Amino acid sequence: MSPALDADVTFIGNATTLLRLGTFTLLTDPAFGPAGSRVHLGWGAWTRRLRDPAMAYADLPPLDLVLLSHLHGDHFDRAARRALPSTLPIVTTPQAQRRLRRRDFTTTGLPTWDAREWRRDGQLLRITALPGRHGPGLVDRLLPDVMGSLIEWEVDGAPRLRLYITGDTLYRPHLGEIRQRCGEIDAMLIHLGGTRLLGLLLTMDGRQGADLTGLIRPRLTLPIHYDDYAVMKSPLSDFLTECRNRSLTRVRALERGETVALSPAL
Rank of each mutant, 00 (worst) to 15 (best):
P3I: 10
A7H: 08
G22Y: 10
F24Q: 04
T25V: 15
P30N: 07
S37Q: 04
V39L: 01
W43D: 09
R49E: 04
R49T: 07
L50Q: 12
P53V: 00
A54G: 11
D59F: 13
D64L: 05
D64I: 11
L67V: 06
G73L: 07
A79D: 04
P94T: 02
A96E: 08
R101P: 03
T106V: 12
G109I: 07
G109A: 05
T112F: 07
E117Q: 14
Q123K: 05
R133C: 02
P136I: 15
P136N: 15
P136G: 12
V139T: 14
D140T: 06
D145G: 10
S149E: 05
V155M: 00
P159T: 12
R160E: 11
R160W: 09
H174M: 13
I178C: 07
I178S: 00
R179Q: 09
R179C: 04
R181I: 09
G193K: 09
G194E: 06
T195D: 02
L197A: 06
L200A: 09
L201S: 04
R207V: 07
G209W: 07
G209D: 05
A210T: 12
I216C: 01
P218Y: 14
R219L: 12
L220Y: 08
T221Y: 03
T221R: 01
I224N: 03
H225R: 09
Y226M: 14
D227I: 00
A230D: 07
S234K: 13
D238N: 13
E255L: 14
R256D: 05
G257N: 03
E258Q: 14
A261K: 07
L266I: 07
